[in-house]
Every structure is written in C-alpha cells, then in structure tokens.
C-alpha cells in the first residue's frame, strides 16, 4: 500500500466523515447525549458543571490534538494558550467591561495570537526537541502571569470577575447552571466544527501527510514548516477558546492554568482517548474529569493517581480507547 492511500485511509478513520451510515447515526446519538446532559446528569447523581468541565477539557485537548495527533507535533506547552485564553477573558471582564462576547473574543485572540507568534520559533523542529522547546516557551507565559502582580493577581490568581448576563438579540440571559452549559456547548461546537473542517480540507490532509512522511511532502512542494505553523496557530486558538470557557466556569483563573503540568495532562488526555481519532480527546477528557472529580474526594495523593495513569496508558494502552476500538472493528 502506498503512503498516500494509507494516509487517506487513516485520515478517514480519524475524522467523523460519514464513511458508513452508522457513523451518522452515532454522531446524532452523541449530539443528543450532549444536548440533554443537563437533564440526565442530575438523574445519575452528578451535576451540570461536571459536564461543562468535560466540554472545556475536551475542547482544549481536541485543539491540541490537531497538532499532536494529526500533524505530529509533540507540543508539551499547550497549557500556555489555555491559560492565556483564561487570562484574556478574565482581564477583559475585570478591567474593561461586562460584555461576555468581548471577553471570550479577548481570550481567544490573546491565546491564539500568542501561539501564532510562537509558531516560527518552534516550527523548524520536530520530535523531542519540539516538545522541549514548546514546554519551555510555555513556562515563559507562566512566569509573566506570576510576576506581573498588580495586573494579573500574581501567584494567587486573577479574581474580581464573574460571568455576566449574556447579551442576545432577544434580551439578556443569566448564565447559571444549564444556561452556562449550553453557552459552553455552543462554543465547543464552534471549535469542534472548525477543527473538523480543517481536517477534512486539503490543508488537513497535508497536515496528516506531514505527520506520516514530511520529507515526501517537501518533495511535493509543500512547506512542512509553514504547515506546522498553521497547525500550531489553529490549535492555539481552539485551546485558548477552551481556556476562556474555563475562566468563566470557575469565575477565576490561576497561574496553574498556564503551568507545564497542565500541558502534560492535555497530552495524556489525547493519548488516553486515542490521538489518531477525531473524538479520542473527548473520550480522554471525560475519563480524566470524572476520575479527577472522584479522586479528589477519595485521596490527597491525586498526583500519584494521575502519575500511575500516565504509566498505565503508556505501557499497556498506547493506542488509547478509541484506537483500540477502531482496530478491533477493522480487524
């Protein structure tokens, strides 16, 4: 099998293109589950904010996965863009004005443009070196947030802002409970739709090509460096959107939202769910958030819990959940 056909098949397997009719049905069920989450979550003894948090982490990880799983760039610094999105939104609400749309836009633009600016520094690199540079650059933003005390709140984090009523054409809506869930779901859908469109465009196919065989792509006249840059930037914008949602969810943001450990969590979320699958990071995020929710009430040693999870996934489960399922189905 030539690399090209292999690549095409992998892309198809990795996207939600309705390759067979069941795919469409499954997507409809999935959408219904998400839409009805505020109804069924309380019924099983959970709460709506947990669902919101799953959406936030899933969006962040899916944004990262465009770069990690589909372009092959090992970014260990995506918490930076997540955190910048959160700070952009928080700072806008605190210092400028109580407009939710502006606040989200500020977060997305701050995080997204930061990633766009960082792109040229990292795009020439691949492999472990890429990981080392992205994580180090991420730390730079962390220290800016920690040290710019009077503006960002320093080590204690940024407080003094909260979700404001959302201005809609028909009047304004207070964003509490289920309302906020649907607010996040809307932006989740926007982000995911963007990623899906990118991956199913020629651009997205070229990105997968860069992952599979970058030299061949160079010979075909495609600039892999620029492709990595574009992927890095788009992925930064989407992750920043998730960060913005996170700030609104907690009415708070702290430098830990920029810290390298969170970057690692995003990567393991992708791998856990299956980073070659479009929805893999979503599955990973759901498992991660539920596990965190559960473990925080059970033990103080959360770091060990997640550390052990890192090891188990790497040693026994490297394809991730959806990767294993997809393989079983096809073979």
């Amino acid at each position: 099998m030539s690399v090209e056909t292999e690549t095409r098949e992998r892309t198809r397997a990795g996207s939600s293109l309705p390759a067979w009719s069941g795919e469409r049905l499954r997507f409809a069920i999935f959408a219904a589950v998400l839409l009805l989450a505020p109804v069924w979550l309380p019924l099983i003894g959970s709460y709506t904010d947990l669902g919101t948090r799953v959406l936030v982490y899933a969006l962040a990880a899916m944004g990262l996965n465009l770069l990690l799983g589909f372009t092959g760039g090992l970014s260990f610094g995506h918490a930076a863009y997540f955190g910048l999105g959160a700070y952009g939104t928080g700072l806008m609400l605190r210092y400028v004005g109580p407009n939710m749309w502006l606040a989200v836009a500020a977060g997305v633009l701050l995080g997204g443009f930061a990633a766009t600016l960082v792109g040229p520094v990292v795009m020439r690199r691949r492999g472990i070196y890429f990981a080392m540079i992205t994580i180090a650059i991420g730390q730079m933003f962390y220290f800016i947030a920690v040290r710019w005390n009077n503006f960002t709140g320093g080590e204690d984090g940024l407080t003094g802002f909260q979700r404001e009523p959302l201005a809609l054409p028909g009047g304004s809506v207070t964003l509490t409970g289920p309302h906020f869930y649907y607010f996040v779901l809307f932006f989740f859908a926007v982000g995911v739709f963007l990623l899906w469109r990118v991956l199913n465009s020629p651009l997205g196919h070229a990105m997968v090509g860069a992952r599979e065989n970058s030299r061949r792509l160079e010979f075909l006249g495609i600039r892999v460096e620029r492709l990595t840059w574009i992927s890095f930037a788009i992925s930064g914008f989407v992750t920043a959107l998730a960060g913005s949602m996170n700030a609104l969810l907690n009415n708070f943001t702290s430098p830990l939202d920029l810290y390298w450990q969170l970057s690692g969590y995003f990567v393991i979320i992708c791998v856990l769910g299956g980073m070659r699958n479009f929805w893999g990071p979503f599955v990973g995020a759901a498992i991660y958030v539920i596990m965190q929710d559960y473990a925080s009430t059970m033990t103080k040693n959360w770091l060990s819990v997640i550390g052990v999870m890192f090891m188990l996934v790497v040693l026994f489960f490297p394809r991730g959940l959806l990767g294993v399922l997809a393989r079983r189905r096809s073979g």
Binding site: G127, A131, V271, G307, F310, M311, L315
Partner: peptide, 25 residues
C-alpha cells in the same frame, strides 16, 4: 526500557508521570 525504539512521545509521558509520582512521594 520497554519504551526504547518507540515513538518518543511515550517515554516523555512516562517520565512525566514518574515526575508527578516522585513529587507526591
């Protein structure tokens, strides 16, 4: 040792997890 020769992503994640565990210990 089981990860030599595999995608560098996995050894990164493994030592990352080990770092978290050591800090917790």
């Amino acid at each position: 040792r089981p990860l030599y020769g595999r995608d560098p992503l996995y050894s990164l994640l493994l030592t990352f997890g080990l770092a978290l565990i050591l800090e917790d210990i």
